[in-house]
Nucleic acid binder design. Structure first.
Length: 163
DNA sequence: GCCAACGTTGGC
DNA sequence: GCCAACGTTGGC
């Protein structure tokens, strides 16, 4: 079981869209390092859902990997903006993964908070110039971030809902 | 909309 | 294999 962070521009596809659709293909990734991360995702992995290029940017919720990476058919769809002339069904080059909605945080965790939280300096998304749309998250980082998303946990015996 | 940072491309 | 030019990303 691994943890990841998936970046998306909410104007293009937001967590609200995933909540409505329940499932989506995480496709159109055209960066080799991000692709390699996508390829190593397995069913059950949990992902932080990050909104970029918006005000404020930050982590808005969670989704879960439901199917392992498979060839991304948009790569050989000439009408797609993700078309890649060097890709074909025989040589797929790019992959996609299916994810399902898990949770929308009551309050998002803004980038500004991530940056100022001790223990998150290693988080890729807080590092200047970080452009990867799929990055791994360490369990230690994951725990800190969920603590930020659910500040009432651990106080007054508040219970955490699951699922 | 600006622009720094980054990845990719291609001439050499 | 170097590296300048280019396109894209994403915080601001």
């Amino acid at each position: 079981m691994n943890y990841w962070l998936l970046k998306t521009e909410p104007d293009t596809f937001s967590l609200a869209d995933l909540r409505r659709d329940k499932l989506t293909w995480w496709d159109g990734v055209r960066n080799y390092q991000a692709r390699n991360y996508l390829s190593s995702m397995v069913r059950g992995d949990l992902c932080l859902f990050y909104h970029s290029r918006c005000q404020p940017p930050g982590i808005v919720g969670l989704c879960r990997v439901v199917s392992q990476a498979e060839p991304d058919p948009l790569a050989w769809d000439a009408k797609s903006k993700y078309f890649d002339p060097k890709a074909s069904p025989d040589n797929p080059r790019w992959v996609r993964t299916q994810v399902e909605f898990v949770e929308q945080f009551a309050e998002m965790v803004p980038l500004e908070v991530l940056k100022s939280t001790e223990g998150l300096a290693s988080l890729k998304v807080v590092q200047k110039g970080s452009r990867l749309s799929v990055v791994p998250v360490e369990e230690r980082e994951w725990t800190i971030i969920l603590g930020l998303a659910r500040p009432q946990n651990g106080r007054c015996g508040a219970k955490q809902e699951s699922g």
